Amino acid sequence: MTLSVLLAGGGTAGHVAPLLATADCLRRRHPDARFLALGTIAGLEARLLPERGYAFVEVPRVPLPRRPSADLYRLPGRLRRGVTAARHAIEQIGADVVVGFGGYVAVPGYLAARRAGVPIVVHEQNSLPGVANRLGARWARSTAVAFPGTPLRGAVHTGMPLRSEITALARDPDRAARRREARAELGLDPHRPTLLVTGGSLGAQRINEVLGACAPDLLDAGVQVLHASGRGKDVALDAGVDRTRYVVRPYLDAIDTAYAAADLVLGRSGAGTVSELTALGLPGVYVPLPIGNGEQRRNAESVVEAGGGVLVADAELDAAFVRSRVVPLLSDPGALAAAAAAAASFGVHDGAERLADLVEAAAGSRS
């Protein structure tokens, strides 16, 4: 029997990246499988899914407001249109299973699947689940979570489905050689302790400002820095800063190469970042995004408590913190090695395979 999968989860990289990793894993296992994704024209999926060879159908965004607002009054009509579009997609592909990753397009997918009697598999990326996946988990045959302890009914810890470049690096038998190669590729010194700084594809202005101001302290300690500033953003460096040792790039096309070069990573604590760093055994200085419902802080807490990194609030990231916590860590090979081992103890390399197992089991339950 040819496997037929409807995928639901778009809008942000946090939903689209694990969706693509899972779909790629299933396609490797089932080369003749059929896939269709629910998405919106405005979401990242409109570009990323076709680039990887996956078709998607547009469904209306269905925001689930947490408090009274205009969106609350628009909800019934949006929901009806969304569920109708999702039901047509289920029928179009003859779906054996609906796999949801949260976000605005997941709710119509879950509701349509329930009404059609199609098994549901939910994957929740954050340690504090969103509204869509809390709803989907009520009806799911299997609920997978990236972090242990995520409060969802019947949750199974599978870890995060990771892109193939990250899993390949995690399994590299000679990471030391790869580190030297990566640093050479990036124009860095193969032997200096290396800090990777990133605020994601859009950058983080506060991180840019604080780290740029601390460049002399880092370089005086013998450290070199690779800093992804974000497109359209810059890092202000004093005229005397050696730009061959404090390297600023707007964007890193090959993040796996940057990870391979790094001893320590300073950045946000989105679920994908925490999952990638722990899979690679990289300690992190986590600066949670200061908006949302606190999920980024929750994502990093367990790793940090075990010694796999440092957690600092956005408002508390300043020059004094960098000098007192980041510079000493980078200057102590033993402390870095211990933090790396602690981070690796949380890492999951095969999250896509574990989730694919649940998808196959759910699809098989229908036959």
Rank of each mutant, 00 (worst) to 15 (best):
A8F: 09
G9M: 06
A13R: 14
A13F: 11
A17I: 14
L19S: 03
L19I: 10
A21L: 07
C25H: 00
C25E: 12
R29L: 10
L44C: 04
A46E: 09
R61E: 05
R61A: 07
R67H: 01
R67F: 00
S69Y: 12
R80E: 11
R81A: 11
A89R: 01
Q92M: 10
G94Q: 07
A95R: 00
F101M: 12
L111M: 10
A112Q: 01
A112L: 03
P119Q: 12
V122R: 07
H123E: 00
E124Q: 01
V131A: 15
R134C: 09
L135R: 06
A140V: 00
T150Q: 07
L152E: 07
P161A: 10
P161K: 07
S164K: 08
A168T: 08
R178T: 15
R178V: 07
E181R: 13
R183T: 06
D189L: 15
D189K: 06
H191N: 03
T198F: 15
G199T: 12
G200R: 00
A204M: 10
Q205T: 15
G222V: 09
A228I: 14
A228Y: 08
A228F: 02
R231P: 09
V235M: 06
V235R: 13
D238G: 15
G240M: 02
G240L: 02
D242E: 04
D242N: 05
R245F: 09
R249H: 12
P250A: 08
I255Y: 06
Y259R: 04
A262C: 12
L266G: 04
G270N: 02
G272H: 02
G272I: 14
G272K: 11
T273E: 09
T273N: 07
T278F: 13
L280C: 08
L282K: 15
P288D: 04
I291R: 11
R297E: 13
V304M: 14
E316S: 10
E316N: 05
V322T: 05
R325S: 08
R325E: 15
R325H: 09
V326P: 15
L329N: 08
D332Q: 05
G334D: 11
A340T: 07
A341C: 06
F346T: 03
V348R: 15
H349S: 13
A356E: 02
V359I: 13
S365G: 04
